[in-house]
Design a protein around this nucleic acid. Structure first.
Ligand code: FES
Ligand code: FES
Lengths: 145, 145
DNA sequence: TTATTAAAAGACAAAAAGGTCTTTTAATAT
DNA sequence: ATATTAAAAGACCTTTTTGTCTTTTAATAA
């Protein structure tokens, strides 16, 4: 569904949020292990997320990643847009240059609603809501097993 | 939605089918132009489709690509599976290793139905059905404009 | 203030995707 | 037969994605 970088970013963010709800501040090594992503690649991605302003970090002893709790919940879509670009999940499913209600391809009537559902999914779900779901036990997996 | 190769392959196949319904047998240059894909890449992809048995071709004067009309309609899914692999549109949307009803991620309940819709879309639509829709004028685009 | 810790920065590289071009083979027309 | 046409085969290249590793910077603790 998403590319690897987006996948790791989302899993990483949700993991940080889960730990933060327990009063912890995980570091790169812990995050990479828990979300089952490559260590150094995870580091690079977390850095990018900090630079983009999605989360914060501190160096040195006791350092790690954490969220600014004064900021509103972070929809998955914001992260996807930042990593994959604004056009992700917006164009024609068939690859045509334009896609509109009145001029469209043969897949449009079936595909457009699906695309809308995906956009709705990533807009309504946030890093925080997924972390809460996880804690409630509604979902069982974070780490890949 | 699909990768470029799949996109070009599907557009190319539908174009061949549309032309075949008019009694024509298009060549690589024509196909590439009409589906707005790179000339040589299109050639390579059409060749692969022939080798995979999805369509036929003849060399030389009057040569080009065409379908064996004795074979059943070709679902998009068959082409996608051949190009992108069997796992396309089957795994966890979050990238987790397993995905099942009883052990799943927080996105599963929302994502699984979407994934099902995509699989239904590519299973029920065929190269031939899309070509017929195009000819009926239900869809307006094939070439990207 | 020094050692230690952990993120930041950035160089480097492997693999996959996407694309280009030339040569060879086979079909047809003359 | 020969020339012409068009696909097949395959070498080669570029870009993007994914991943690795070392060096630097900043924070903390002793
Ligand atoms: S035009 Fe193809 S999905 Fe809208
Ligand atoms: S477990 Fe994630 S979509 Fe099914």
């Amino acid at each position: 569904m998403f590319n690897k970088e987006t996948e790791y970013a989302l899993r990483g963010l949700v993991y940080v949020q889960i730990q933060q709800m327990k009063g912890l501040k995980p570091g790169i090594a812990e995050i990479a292990t828990e979300i089952d992503a490559p260590l150094f690649y995870t580091g690079k991605i977390m850095q990018r997320l900090v630079k983009m302003g999605f989360l914060m970090s501190t160096k040195g002893k006791g350092g790690g990643f954490y969220f600014d709790l004064t900021r509103p919940d972070l929809p998955l879509k914001a992260v996807i847009r930042a990593i994959e670009g604004a056009k992700a999940y917006s164009g024609c499913g068939f690859g045509l240059k334009s896609c509109s209600e009145d001029l469209h391809c043969s897949l449009h009537d079936q595909y457009a609603p699906i695309r809308d559902s995906i956009n709705n999914l990533v807009s309504t779900n946030t890093v925080q809501s997924l972390a809460r779901d996880y804690q409630k036990g509604d979902d069982i997996l974070l780490r890949r097993r």
